[in-house]
Every structure is written in structure tokens, then in C-alpha cells.
């Protein structure tokens, strides 16, 4: 296998993604299989090929620096799990 269980745990931490302990092994296997598939890309030489990030090779469109949005805080906070007085609540960060 290309990956170890420890590496999968590290990736999961980087992604802030909780994974049940009993599932680590199956993720390790699945991800190793996919990485194995990806190795096929190595067969083709790509030296000097410009990476393609976007199908249209577009650049960002510019617009006038004008206010276009009105304040929609109440509307957006209506779908938040926990808010108080217009603020999103999270666990204490600073002791």
C-alpha cells in the first residue's frame, strides 16, 4: 500500500475531518488504490506543458469598485446553527 494508517490520520487532521477509528484501515486501502491509479499519469511526459487550471484559460473579470450588495446578515444568520446578538458562537478560543 502506498499510504500508511498514520499518514491517513495526518491527512484527516489537515482536513479537520473526523474519521472513526475502525474506518481508518478501509480509507487507507481505498486511498492507496486511488493513488495507485494516479501513478498512471507518470507514464506520460509532460515537461514544458503549461498546467491547465480552467477550461477557458480565463482571467478574472474586473468590475467597478462599487457597493453592490446590501447587508443580508439577518437572512444569512437565520441558517446558522448558533448565533447570539448577531454573532456566530464558537467554543472559547482564548482562555
Amino acid at each position: 500500500m502506498i499510504l500508511t494508517a498514520e499518514e491517513v490520520k495526518k491527512i484527516a487532521y489537515l482536513a479537520r475531518l473526523g474519521i472513526e477509528h475502525q474506518d481508518i484501515e478501509s480509507y487507507t486501502q481505498d486511498l492507496s488504490n486511488v493513488l495507485d491509479l494516479m501513478q498512471q499519469m507518470g507514464k506520460t511526459g509532460t515537461e514544458g506543458v503549461l498546467p491547465m487550471a480552467h477550461p477557458m484559460d480565463q482571467v478574472q473579470r474586473l468590475r467597478q469598485d462599487l457597493v453592490t450588495e446590501s447587508n443580508g446578515r439577518q437572512n444569512f444568520q437565520a441558517v446558522a446553527p448558533l448565533v447570539e446578538e448577531g454573532l456566530y458562537l464558537v467554543p472559547k478560543v482564548i482562555e
Binding site: V8, I11, A12, Y13, L14, A15, R16, L17, G18, I19, E20, D23, Y27, D30, L31, V34
Partner: peptide, 20 residues
């Protein structure tokens, strides 16, 4: 970590891990 762990299913998690 827990919100994401509980909210996402297995295939989504697989792809997040691969992408990360």
C-alpha cells in the same frame, strides 16, 4: 472535526482526503 466527521458521508470524506 466532529461537525465535518458527522455531516459528511464516506465518499465525500474519501474525496476530501484525496484532495487534501
Amino acid at each position: 472535526t466532529r461537525s465535518r466527521g458527522e455531516g459528511f458521508g464516506k465518499e465525500v470524506k474519501r474525496r476530501i482526503l484525496m484532495g487534501t
